[in-house]
Amino acid sequence: MKSGKFWAWLVFALGAAYFFIPLIATVEFSMRMRRGEYSFDAYKVVLGDARFQATFGYSVLAAVFTIILGVLIVVPAAYWIRLRLPQLRPIVEFITLLPLVIPAIVIVFGYIRMYGSNSPLPFLATDTGTNALLVIGYATLALPYMYRAVDTGLRTIDVRTLTEAAQILGAGWGTIITRVILPNVLIAVLSGAFLTFAIVIGEFTMASLLNRPAFGPYLQNIGANRAYEPAALAIIAFAITWGCMSLIQILSRFAPRSANRPN
């Protein structure tokens, strides 16, 4: 018993060291810009950089559109599968796992070849089309996470019973979706949304190969040309990821708890 506890502490301490040393080192490095003293100069330079503002804004916008697209695709499908088409569940779960197996670089390579200017669907012929294709690509990357989040949300509220109860009370489909289902899965959808945001905001591969002025390629460019700013950017990116995850945690406290499931 005693020795077990010792090993647990040891493992935990080693893990904590591995995870915290790079963070501490990065913070330290990011503050070394002014010779001989610590300062926040690197952060000032980064945050004041017009390209930082532009690319970050672009990626935030792309993330927002990705979330909207993801919700529109995933929520109806997950809902219908829970409610009426459970036989499709294995197929859909398989599809949502594919993006974890097919590398992002392969997916975007496929897009470039399939949707080029000479193809029947020339997404890449225009700027808007390319932006749309980037959002689409991000939505496929986020698909596993979005689907899982929404499906878990639907499972805990037992949509089938809720829908049937609403039907018995005379509600139409519009009412059911807007008044019964959406409010109850909102927390799950938001969790998926923040996770999507965390994945998309610094994404490099797709944005770079589609030549979009996004935050990921900007990060890479700074990394190749500057010394202290990349460390500051890493800390900023870590803070953004941390913020998204914290929001998910806070949201989960407001998630509806199942009241009537007999297990």
């Binding site: 790079p22 080192a25 990065t26 990394g223 460390a231 890493a234």
Partner: peptide, 15 residues
């Protein structure tokens, strides 16, 4: 687990 990509590389370069 979501802190990957370019920023992670920066952190390890700094370490």
């Amino acid at each position: 687990s979501n802190f990957a990509g370019v920023p992670l590389a920066f952190a390890f370069l700094a370490t």
